[in-house]
């Protein structure tokens, strides 16, 4: 089974440091297969990333992407932001998550920490409508400027609406 080397000690160190720095900021802390996943409160995400970068050697931001959880199973509809960090020195990867309610889906920008998040944030805005305050140029990146929706939200239909050749009775839909 392909897996990253699990570094339990460093994982614990990261969690402890985050808990110490943000006493009620860490919401959940889970181990998914080979990677520790720490869910933090929305306000804490930016300072937490700064702390991880400056003090715990996480020099490289691998990805930042959005996520949409529709309402259901007792949870409200919410948007999430997932960040993967990598420490080249310790060969250590970690995942951070934060959720935000639909009515105010805004995070502070991370471009001041890693310029690479510039386009990733634009993508998250384009796909999910997650805003980033302080972003140098927050506009749609992959879709057209005047696109009317946030397409990767679960309620947006995938298929092209202009197709007329699809007979639903043939596809059993």
């Amino acid at each position: 089974m392909p897996a990253f080397t699990i570094q339990a000690e460093r994982d614990q160190l990261v969690v402890d440091r985050l808990r110490a720095a943000f006493p009620d900021g860490v919401v959940a802390d889970e181990q998914f297969h080979d990677m520790r996943c720490i869910t933090v409160r929305k306000e804490v995400l930016h300072p937490a990333l700064r702390l991880l970068r400056d003090e715990l050697d996480f020099n490289f931001l691998t990805t930042l992407c959005g996520m949409h959880h529709p309402a259901g199973a007792g949870a409200e509809e919410r948007l999430g932001l997932v960040v993967h960090l990598n420490s080249f020195r310790h060969r250590h990867r970690i995942r951070l998550k934060a959720y935000t309610a639909m009515k105010d889906p805004v995070f502070p920008t991370f471009t001041d920490l890693w310029p690479t998040t510039n386009w990733m944030e634009r993508e998250a805005w384009d796909f999910f409508g997650i805003g980033f305050t302080g972003h140098p140029d927050l506009k749609r990146i992959l879709n057209m400027e005047d696109f009317p929706a946030f397409p990767l939200r679960k309620d947006y239909p995938l298929e092209d609406p202009t197709r007329e050749d699809k007979d639903n009775s043939m596809f059993g839909r």
Binding site: Y156, D160, T162
Partner: peptide, 12 residues
């Protein structure tokens, strides 16, 4: 025809 990309962003 749009091929396998029957999506909102691809011209069919």
């Amino acid at each position: 025809s749009g091929g396998i990309f029957d999506t909102y962003s691809v011209l069919q």
